[in-house]
């Protein structure tokens, strides 16, 4: 980058954030405007410090849900950064991303998408294809496409994000399970039930392995127990009083990353139900209840 935020601006930023957090926008906004005026007088309009100050003020407007005003400031900041830092700079990508977020908040997904795409291109160029910030950008892009019903593209972006998370942070990173969940929900939207089911099973198997080690004949994840229960239901009916299988150890495992695992349990349960596998569905739903 070669450019760092000056201490004076950092102090002012912290002060503005404090006022904004207290809802004292009537103090925060004039403070920002005064600082902007001072900066422009001493450094001129086209200076990175002015762009940073515009970003601070945009944040205050965003917090007040004044998205149009915020977007106007970010467009100004974007032009300054492109001029002073160059077109392919991470600060330019970040500004483009935040502009896309503001458009997204106003439901303008179509306008937001190209901004998000440009941010992605810059990050890939500067950071390489396998970087967590690239995955973050892919997540935002996927969400914008999802809101436009472009599921083929959503699928591509989430797949790439999963690949990045798995390659640079390992399979246990919570973002892997979260992104796989999002990808599975995109598969469901397209009626790709088999693909979604496979992903849900992957998530639950990983959660199991993390807690109890490799899966084998004795050591099985919850969905295998649920399917066995489904398969043996006729035998149990003959015996009349079959004991309900204990999933005690699984309740513990689910606590590891409960929001994602809980969602996955419910989603796979719903898929089982759709296939008429009611016993398997009940087993997962019971487990989800306990981990809530």
């Amino acid at each position: 980058g070669g450019y760092e935020i000056p201490a004076r601006l950092q102090t002012l930023h912290n002060l503005v954030i404090q006022y904004a957090a207290q809802g004292r926008y009537e103090v925060a906004v004039p403070l920002c405007k005064q600082a902007l005026e001072d900066l422009e007088k001493t450094s001129g309009h086209d200076h990175p410090d002015v762009a940073t100050m515009l970003n601070i003020l945009a944040l205050v407007y965003r917090d007040q849900n004044k998205y149009k005003e915020a977007a106007h400031l970010l467009n100004d900041a974007l032009a300054i950064r492109e001029k002073t830092l160059g077109k392919d700079h991470c600060a330019v990508a970040a500004t483009l991303n935040n502009l896309a977020v503001l458009y997204g908040k106003r439901g303008k997904y179509k306008e937001a998408e190209p901004l998000c795409k440009r941010a992605l291109e810059i990050r890939e160029k500067v950071l390489g294809k396998y970087h967590p910030d690239v995955a973050k950008q892919l997540n935002n892009l996927a969400l914008l496409c999802q809101n436009q019903g472009k599921y083929e593209e959503v699928q591509d972006y989430y797949r790439r994000a999963v690949e990045i998370y798995e390659s640079c942070v390992g399979p246990d990173y919570p973002s892997v399970a979260k992104t796989k969940n999002n990808l599975a929900s995109c598969y469901l939207k397209q009626g790709k039930y088999k693909e979604a089911e496979a992903l849900y099973k992957e998530i639950l198997t990983r959660a199991h392995e993390r807690e109890f080690g490799s899966v084998n004949g004795e050591n099985k994840p919850i969905w295998m127990h649920a399917e066995e229960r489904e398969e043996s239901k006729d035998q149990r009916k003959e015996k009349d009083s079959a004991p309900y299988r204990e999933y005690g150890s699984w309740y513990k495992a689910c606590k590891v990353d409960s929001p994602t695992v809980n969602t996955t349990l419910k989603s796979l349960g719903a898929l089982y139900r759709r296939q008429g596998k009611l016993e398997a569905a009940e087993a997962l739903e019971a487990c989800a209840q306990k981990t809530r």
């Binding site: 450019y3 973050k136 969400l143 914008l144 419910k266």
Partner: peptide
């Protein structure tokens, strides 16, 4: 539930715009 999951997904703001 799936809808709930989708609703929870939010576009992520990049805070690094203030640190450059």
């Amino acid at each position: 539930d799936q809808q709930n999951v989708n609703r929870q997904q939010q576009l992520e703001w990049d805070d690094s715009t203030l640190t450059y």
